[in-house]
């Protein structure tokens, strides 16, 4: 009788104790996660002009491919609007890009993530953890391919400092390499949805958020005054 009681209790305990309840993932918004970082040595208030190419580099392509349709132009337009709001002046003529203080490059990654192991992360501690079937199992595997996939969007904004172009040119003439400093980096990343308008709006919101969380960007009053 006692052993039955113990075994019942052991079974109940083993079955239940590995239960880690998942949170409600539907509560998470579909807005892109926006990350930014910058070089503390950069004097963002001192820059006056920038060059922004009229295309977006599609990084996921096997070869360099540029995204130039109206959606790309819409994103570039939002970047331009934000840069202008920071007080920087765009140089639109590609022939004059060497005159710009800043270069802004926009890249896009559309990625399809294939999951082939059942979808559970290796630290999974939930009900269908392999340990649920007995503590003697050391893991699981699929003898046949099981896959599902999900798509993600990533938009990357990078700001490079072009004011050292003369020094770089002199270094190049002397046979030395002079690396181009990326003084600001921002990315907006998240799930890609079936509706293109939704995806575009999320990317545009991501651009706006990247600038709004980077309050250090922008010409200072003193710079504007001296320029005038």
């Amino acid at each position: 009788m006692i052993m039955k009681k113990v075994l019942f209790f052991a079974g109940l305990l083993l079955a239940m104790a590995s239960c880690e309840k998942d949170p409600d993932f539907d509560e998470l918004s579909c807005d892109l996660v926006v990350y930014s970082d910058y070089d503390t040595e950069a004097a963002f208030g001192a820059y006056a002009t920038y060059f922004l190419p009229d295309s977006i580099l599609d990084v996921a392509s096997h070869e360099a491919r540029y995204w130039k349709d109206e959606n790309a132009l819409s994103i570039i337009g939002e970047v331009e609007r934000q840069m202008d709001a920071c007080g920087y002046t765009r140089i639109a003529d590609p022939e004059k890009k060497a005159e710009a203080d800043l270069g802004v490059q926009v890249s896009y990654v559309s990625q399809t993530n294939h999951v082939t192991t059942g979808g559970y992360p290796s630290y999974w501690g939930g009900w269908w953890d392999y340990g649920f079937w007995g503590p003697w199992w050391g893991g699981w595997y699929y003898p046949y391919p099981v896959t599902y996939s999900y798509d993600t969007n990533t938009l990357i904004l990078e700001m490079v400092d072009l004011t050292g172009a003369d020094a770089a040119q002199q270094a190049g003439d002397a046979g030395e390499s002079h690396r181009l400093p990326v003084i600001w980096y921002a990315s907006a990343h998240g799930y890609q949805y079936g509706n293109n308008r939704v995806n575009m709006q999320l990317l545009l919101d991501g651009v706006s958020q990247a600038f709004s969380q980077s309050a250090y960007l922008g010409r200072t009053e003193a710079s504007n005054t001296s320029a005038n």
Partner: peptide
Amino acid sequence: FHTNHRYIGRQTLALSPTESLTTDQQRS
């Protein structure tokens, strides 16, 4: 055993003196 959850609305977090991250969170 116990699991507690908490949803945190979208906000900008300072990950370091120079890094910022804007997102909402579901904590477990």
